[in-house]
Design a protein around this nucleic acid. Structure first.
Lengths: 189, 189
DNA sequence: GTTTTGACTAAATGAACATTTTGGTCATTT
DNA sequence: AAATGACCAAAATGTTCATTTAGTCAAAAC
């Protein structure tokens, strides 16, 4: 990939992480990337597309990390658990996701809202794949994979994000227990 | 209760349902209630308190409806299901809740946001009570009642509200099955 | 004496306008 | 052919000012 393109992406990622999408100007990105503003538009057709590309890479990165958490020797239950844990740890600790989620909450920038929705959809699709594989292998009983992935994801959001708004955060240990107790029981053969 | 007070509450409820909280003026309420504006302030210390009182009555009404759905001859599982179904049917069909939820989503009026949060908290507390009763009677296994009520509520929101944003709505039948399959299995003795 | 009221006020809102900022372009330079 | 930054239209932001509105209180009604 072109060196300039890489610089632009790097600069934009840093600026989005630091100031958010809205507060980042294309002049700013050009300055940080040491390129003329016009150069950015030879690689990306708009500011929004620049964000989309960055988030696409981030999605790949998250999927890669989740894949790394999966261990073929472990059961489906343990693996889906480990994968989701990785996904949400990323969400919580990665500067860019933190800043973008903040921006959606506080200002609701439409471009950012859309891109974060896509992130959610892609994570659900990822879990769905794992469910379909496990179903094919007969590791879990037959179920609607989309709906199941959706519920798993929502439960993880509830435990990881919503619960903490009004209560003490749950330990990873406790969350694993709850997830197993409430959601995975229904999938046992 | 004073006749005037009743008129005021009735007028405000109607106006909040029709136009929302923000778009309702105290002059408007006074006109609709056929009282002077000053009279409102002999019963309620502010517009916000007027809303709070109305929502408090609504909460009682919802709890009452949920109680009506409960049948002592049925199992805990069936009853908690029936109660939650009633709660969410109310939420979806009652003019005032529809309008207020819309207002939170579209404008985010703080007073309305707070009052709707309280509604959620109170519904969770209601479910929590039912769980504690069932636990005391040995109908379900021991669990953290707050956390369990919280998860039940979040799962119902996921199925009733979030799922419909990107998929075909689920039938009551299907929702009951899912709720049983995924969440209630974990509570079986 | 008590209750009710609506004219009044201070604060909030928003319409209208001026100013600045910014995403995106393109003629020029390298 | 690739890169640039001055330039422009449009959007965002700041400012002003008239209108609206939540809440008060002196006077009226009972």
């Amino acid at each position: 990939m072109s060196e300039k393109r890489k610089q632009i992406i790097e600069a934009a990622t840093k600026s989005f992480s630091l100031f958010g999408y809205k507060a980042t100007t294309m002049d700013q990105v050009a300055k940080m990337a040491n390129v003329g503003k016009g150069t950015i538009y030879t690689f990306f057709k708009s500011k929004e597309e620049l964000l989309e590309e960055i988030v696409s890479s981030m999605i790949s990165e998250i999927k890669h990390e989740a894949d790394e958490a999966i261990d073929q020797h472990l059961s489906f239950k343990e693996n889906v658990q480990r994968a989701l844990q990785r996904i949400f740890t990323f969400r919580k600790e990665h500067e860019l996701t933190i800043k973008l989620l903040q921006e959606v909450r506080d200002i609701g920038t439409p471009a950012v809202r859309d891109v974060m929705k896509r992130l959610d959809r892609e994570m659900i699709a990822y879990v769905r794949e794992k469910i379909e594989e496990a179903m094919a292998k007969g590791e879990i009983r037959s179920c609607d994979p989309e709906l199941t992935a959706f519920l798993m994801f929502k439960m993880y959001i509830a435990l990881n994000v919503d619960w903490e708004k009004e209560h003490e955060p749950l330990s990873q240990q406790k969350m694993a227990e709850l997830f197993d107790l409430y959601l995975l029981k229904g999938l046992s053969q």
